[in-house]
Amino acid sequence: MLQIILGAVSLGLLWAIMTIGVYITYRILDIADLTVEGTLAMGAAIAAQAITSGVNPYAATGLALVGGLIAGFTTGILHTQLKIPALLSGILTMIALYSINLRIMGKANISLLRMDTVYTWLQNLGLSDTNAVIALGLVFVLVIVCFLYWFFGTEIGCAIRATGNNPKMVRAQGINTDTMKIIGLVLSNGLVAISGALIAQSQSFADVQMGTGSIVIGLASVIIGEVLFGKKNFFSRLISLVLGAITYRIIIALVLKMGMPANDLKLFTAITVAIALSLPVFRSYLNPVKISLKEGR
């Protein structure tokens, strides 16, 4: 049982990075960005191809980051400069990435068995595979959380937050909302690519399909984090995303342990997210009086 939980925690930490990426677009920019489905697989593909070609695993993860930044930039250009709706821009990049990922890998999947990964040196220190992932995952997550906490406190960061909130007001303050959206998308997809690279190295393979449904997993983690762990200030929000991603993995591990067929996993996740997203509607059915009083009608 402890092994299952630890495994879920390790996977949750790696997916937390992806979750933070989804949070940046979905909550901060108010864009549902589907690019991430392609970017996650792209991060994995680049890292796997680079590692099997003899590149240092950390450098390979860095290359994955660069790929993610470019993917985000592409969606940003499609949306802001070519005026394609955000949802469709993301879908276009995602579909394009499927072919690109196949080209990067040259085949549908690459095995990393017996290759040096970012975790190898920790395993050489005597940590178990799972503990090595947890240790390194924690370091990555902490660095990223601190970086974002700083970044969203800067002038540019504030401008990005405001852009997702009220673009008209932001333009009136002399800020180019297009630029802010692009920066947000670039940042988000960069993180998702890192996440993909780390996941591929921890599971010892990269697969062109591994991004499928990842946006839903990301959203589920965001929502679980917000519901269970509160959203007092920005720092606690970031931490709640990490905890949300881990909780999601623990829930999945438990339902699988309880005998749910793995094939039903995506259905289960989709239903969970649908329920979580529709909670406000159910609440208003249950408490119609309270709501109407609040609105003063």
Partner: peptide, 24 residues
């Protein structure tokens, strides 16, 4: 911007016409 603090809104306005940087 409704989701942002009063001081954050004022800070956005205080920088109207200025290039946004990585300063606080």
């Amino acid at each position: 911007a409704a989701n942002m603090w009063i001081e954050e809104n004022l800070a956005l306005a205080f920088r109207r016409g200025k290039k946004r940087t990585l300063k606080w």
